[in-house]
Structure formats: C-alpha cells, structure tokens
Design a protein around this nucleic acid. Sequence first.
RNA 1: GGGCGGAUAGCUCAGCUGGUUAGAGCACCGGUUUUACAAGUCGGGGGUCACAGGUUCGAACCCUGUUCCGCCUACCA
Length: 826
Amino acid sequence: MNSNDFPKKYDYPTVEKKIAQYWEDNEIYKFKHGAGNDKIYAVDTPPPYVSSAHLHVGHVMSYSQAEFIIRYKRMKGFNIFYPMGFDDNGLPTERYVEKKYKINKSKITREDFIDLCLKETKAGIETYKSLWKSAGISADYGLSYSTIDERSRKTSQKSFLALYDKGLIEKRNEPILWCPKCRTSLAQADVLIEEFGGVLYDIEFNSMSGKSLIISTTRPELLGGCVAIYANPGDERYKSLKDVRIKIPLYDRDVPVKYDESVDINYGTGLMMVCTWGDASDVIKWKEDKLDTFMIVNGAGRLNELSGNYSGLNVKDAKKAIVSDLRELSLIKGEKPLVHHVGVHDRCETPIEFILAKQWFVKILEHKERFINAGNAMKWHPEFMKTRYDEWINNLKWDWNISRQRFYGVPFPVWYCSDCGEAIVADEASIPVDPVTNPPHIDKCPKCGGKEFKPETDVMDTWMTSSMTPFINTSWAYGRDADNGLFNKVYPMSLRPQAQEIIRTWLFYTVVKSIYHTDIVPFENIMISGWGLDKNGKKMSKSQGNFVDPENIIAKYSADALRYWASKAGLGQDLRFNEEDVVNGRRLLIKIWNAARFLITNVHRGFNPHEKNITEIKIGQVDKWIITELENTLKICETDMESYNYSSSLRTATDFFYNVYCDNYLEIIKNIFWEEDGKNDDRKNTVLNVMYFVSLNVLKIFAPFLPFITEELYLSFYKNFENDKSIHLSAWPEFDKGLVFDDSVKIVGILLNILDASRKLRTGLNLHQNHRASKLLIKTLNPDYIEVINEISGDIMSAARVRRIVFSDKADFKTGDDALFISIEK
RNA sequence: GGGCGGAUAGCUCAGCUGGUUAGAGCACCGGUUUUACAAGUCGGGGGUCACAGGUUCGAACCCUGUUCCGCCUACCA
C-alpha cells in the first residue's frame, strides 16, 4: 500500500471480513501434521451442544479467553493442534428439537425424530462455525468433529467394548435416577439439587399392638411404597418398637421397624418412613438392609395399581388426594411448611424419581482415588476450581449410568439372545453399528445356542461420547498408529479449556475414560472460565431472555472490541456484560490505528527498518527510554501470559501503549515531522526506526487479543519489511536485557516531570494545544540536573511546546520532583 | 450443614511476597479543533478500601469474627 493512501478511519466491518478470509485462504491456523514441528500444543476444544440461537456473548468470552493463550503459544513457536468440536448428540439436542417442534418422543417415530435432530444439528454447526470465525477463533476448522459423526460413534463404541472387556462396564438391575418427563434414566451428574417449598406432614401410624406413632414426611404420596420405619438406635423412645410391626395408614399392609445411626433424633418425631424409593437414603437403606420392594411410581411419574385407589394419578395429584384422605381420617397431626432440597433433571427441571431398571453402568465408585490423583496430576487455572472436582468425586454415590431410553445418540453395540437374554457385544471390526438395523456378527448364542436376537434400543449418555474428545480428535478408534501416529503425538493434550459447570461432567468423565484407557492423565493444563453475566450480574441464558447476541455486538463494534471485553475477566471469574467496555475496546483499536497511521504516513521512500540494528542507529535518550519501557512491558506480558494471566497482560500492554508510547513518546517526538523537508532528516530516520521497532512489538503483544486489527496493520505495512505471512505466525517478542537503559529512564524522568507540570500550567494559562510558549523557566535544587536538562533541552522544548528554556529562580511551580520547579511565559 | 469466590470512586474493575499522598476506564466539571487520533487531547473534582477487633514501626493486603452477593456441595426424611 502506498502510505499516502492509508485510510484515515479504521473500517472494521470490511477489514475483519477480509482478514478472516485471508486466514482461511492461507491456512494460517492449520495444524502442521508430520511437518517436523513436534513442539505441539494441543487443545481439547469444548464442543458446546449444538442448538443454534442460544449463543450469547458469554460463549464468545470463554472461547476467546482460551484462545488468548493459544494464540500466544502459536507465536511462541508451538505447532497448534486446535480442532473445533460440535456436540450434537444426545438429550440436549433432543430436548431442543422437542421444544422447537412441540413434539415428544412418544408421538413420533424414531426415524423421523432422528432426522429432525440431524437437520437441526447441521443448521447449528453452521451457525457456530460462522460465529467462531467472525469472532476470530483460530481453530483449525479442517479438524472439526461432531459427536454424532461416524468417527465419534466408532470411538464411543470402541470405548464401550474396551471397558466391557476390562469388566469396567456391566449391566445391572437396580434402582436408578429417572426423569418422568424425559422418560429416561439419568446419571448423578445430570441431576441438580433445587430448593423447593414443601410441607412436612406429621402422620399418625399405629403399631399392630395399637400404639399411636407420629411420623413426619414430605412425601405422603409414597405411603403405599413404605417398606420400613426407621429410628435411631440410641433413641430411648423407640427402643421398645423392636420386633413390632407398624400398620401403614390407608393401606392394608404393615412394615417392620429398623434402626440406623443416620436417623436424626431431633428431626420430626425421630421416626423416618422409608419407601421404595423416595430419595437416595431410601435406596441406601433398601440395599443395606435388603428391604422389601413396593415400587408404586411408574416411568411416567404416575402411581400404579400397587397404590390402590390412587392408581393413574401423577405424583403431585396423588399427594393432594392422599393428604385429603388422611385429613378426613384425622390422621394428619401437624403440617409445617419447610424448604427442602430436591434433585431435578438438569435439562428440564423435573423432580427425579427412583425406579428399578436394567441399565448399563461404568463402574466409577471403586476407583475414586485414581480420579482424585489424576486431578492432582494436572495444573488447574485457577487453582481453586480443583476443589469442585475433588468435592464432586468424594460425593459420588452411584456408578455412572450410561443407558438412556432415548433415540438420538450413539447406540450400544449390543444385542440380546431372545432365548436366554445373554448380551452379545459387537466385534471391534464392525463398529460403528446400530443394532436396530445391523444384525450381530454371530448367528448362534454362545450361551444357549439361540438363534434369535433383540437389539439394545437404549442409546448411550451423550457424555459417553463427549468424554472421548481427546480420543475422537486423534482417531484413536482407528488404532494408535492411525493418522501417522497422531494419538501418540498429541496425547496427553496441553490444554483443556472449559466452563465451570461441566467440571463434574465433561472434565470428570474425560478423566475417567482417559485413566481407564491409557492410565495417563489427559491434560497438562485445565483452564476454567467464568460465566458471562448480564448487566445486573445475572447469568446469561436463553431461557431468561437476558442474553446479548454476539453477532450484533461484533457488527456494531468489531470482534476485536468484543474480545477486549472478554479479556477483562481473569480465569474463573464471572464477567458482566457492559457495552462500555466494548466501546473502550473499540477506542483502543482506533488509537492503535491512528498511532500506526502516524508512522506509516511519515515513512519515506527507501525506509528500511532492518538496515541497522536498533542499537546501532544514533538513538537519543528518549529513544532509549521508550525502548526500555517497551522491554519492561514485554517482560511483564510474557510472565503474565505464561501464567494464564492474559487479563493483566493486555492491561499492561494497553497502559504502555496509551500512557507511555502515545501520550508521551509520540508527543515528544512528533514536532520534528513538522519541520521543513531536509531539516532533521537523520533524527527523523532514527525516530521512524524506533517507532517501527516499538509499534511492531506492541502490535505483537496485542495480537492474541486483537487478531484482526493487528493482522491488518501487519499485512498492509509491516509485512513489507518482515517475512512471516501473518503476524500470528510471527515470533513473540522476547525481552532483551541489552535494550534496557536505566540511565535514560532516569534522565527522561526529569523531562516527564517537566512535561507533566507544563501541561498543568498551560491549562491554567488557557494556551492552545499547539501554541509555542516563548519561555520555559526552570529552577532546580539539584546541580546534576543542569547538565542533563541541557542535553535533552531539544526534547523538552518539543514536548512542552516552548521556544526557549531559561534557568531562573523565578520558576515556582513544583513538579513531581521536589528538586524541580518550572514556570511558563506565554 | 460444609466449602469456594467476591465486597476498593456514582458505575465496571486493577492494586505483585504488607512500605510514601490507594489507581484506570466510563460518567461528571473545565480548557482545547488545519499539523496520528473530537470515536480525540490536556487539566480537575470524587474513596472511612463491607463491618468489628487483632498482629506490625507501618494494613486495601496478614490473622480472628460478623454482614451481604454469587457459586459448588450435602441422605433432616
């Protein structure tokens, strides 16, 4: 570009589109597989579940934050393995489709439903890709994966087969967590605890000997499922009940009394009704004490025939009916409102129930210690997030149930013998298979010789696939040598960036799988981002309607400006969205543009920044000072980036750029460019070289954050003198001790004190910005200053916009330096 | 119930292992437009660092307790 043509305004909508295209056309972010650079930095990209139109600026925030580090690593010379993932299988997508088309799984065929899911998935992927690209996310889109594609299905099924072989997966018939709305079983990680207002009913029971007993419960509708009454073994009141049976009100049934330490003497009357099953403690007691089983709630959340008169009612209506009947019999002796905590399905917020069912489980309870150790073997950023991981593992109560009674997911590679029920798992060569459409590889049941087989119709938990991302990415399912040994090169991966709410799912399950399959932790570093909050500090979400559309913000202020906002929160910190910060980002861009413009438009023909080394040209004190300040900045920025403290890095860079480089250095030197041609040519050339050196390095430390504008300036100007085809492939500027001139910093400190004071005086004198005052009077109490001031008098006059400097005792305005006073005469 | 994070200017936030007079941006007030930038620039006002104790020559920072906000976790049914 001809420097005279350099645009006055930064036209970011046009430029950002153009630059994004440049990156794509030139494969700037392509992973160089097999090209010799084995200094690999591998990222396990989060695959957010694909349902277009729920994306908000918070998503851009967390992706950007990880990407700041990734871009930095790229400039540090790493060969970046950065695939883009799209999570599109499983219940989240199904829920999205159900809502969008107002259907549910009982009113549509499996095939039609899957078709709709695939259609939405495809649309979702396009929306995501387009947003990530416009936000400048530097993934290698050629490495994209979707969790429903063939490679993912093969990987999940291979994992299933491998763990089945190791005895780490098994099918069991036991009480499981169940969502009556989605009609599927769930894992503990799919359940959230929510606060509910409820009522604690004191209900009168009678022992068979006629003794009246008051028992408190929040779930009278489960009376029909009551299988025992518990008391604390130390509770004197109830010791006599040993061997006594208790009659259940409304039902013609009686149950035993049992004792357990877990019963709180002070809660209610100290008696506890245990049912099949109201909560986890019921299940535990049922297992430990081998209680009877009276399952009165069915999979649809309705009471069944075992409940007698209440059969067919849903849980809520049954509660009303039973309470009303108990009232009529005067068996309700008390009602206390209380707040209690109920587990709900995280996708639909329906309270979960326990039902008995045959399900596939990945055993995890017996290996908790290994997972805790794995957590300790990875570096957490920020550190305190590891607590959540540890806490989750320590509190696990159930093995990981991976069966889902749904349609859209990866099928189990399993059939059952119609005669004896024996499970037949697929052979590895045939996966991925869908047992509903594919026959098994054998024609005879190995156990009973039966020739008929039924497919497993459940699908796997979506996390069964997502937990395999490091393996999907590296084609592990095709053998460890597949894809030129990619797995061995990339695994374990350098970085797992992700949001905090999926520590217990995506992260935990990935660790489980990785440990089981390889016995090696999957990541060196884990980076946990906070949430994007709305203006009022509430979490942004589609359902709350308080989300900000990133496309609009990018269109209005540019992607770089949005990324600037994203840099404001440190790791693990939530960040409020306020448009002011985006506006500030745009201001920074404009400032960068204009500072570059000053250099570019002053560069003469024949300018060559590499003719001599920066130290070999005749640099003055102010040049040495600005170079020193730059070096100190580079040092801090590098330290910050190395410790994932990107926020501080950008702040430091911005401070230097604004307050030191623009407001002071450029202000001090710019006057020389106003002189007639021919005058000061040497000095001009020196200053241009210094500006080139400083501004290019500043641009580089801005580059991870503001990839578009830095690239635009690089390509349109700096690249004329540099070799790299993108600033993002250029080398991160290393701190150079040889470019630190502490004496110059001291000397220029005097100048800056004078400049600062003179600005105050000029404001007081109402002087025009560029008015050249006639005299600057200086008084100094430090004789050493005189020589220094004489040496840099040209710069002082230039900076303070004065024609002459005079040492005079009349100077009476104290500067920031106690030994230095100045005055200005108009 | 247990735990984690936070509370600093009107607003959004910096403030390193304790060290002069606690910073920035926005907002507010005033000056200033041919000479990189008015989406600018220069200057100014504005804070009992949540509260109460303690340690120290010295505390926004360390310790103890309290309050409020957010979150994680939990078998008082």
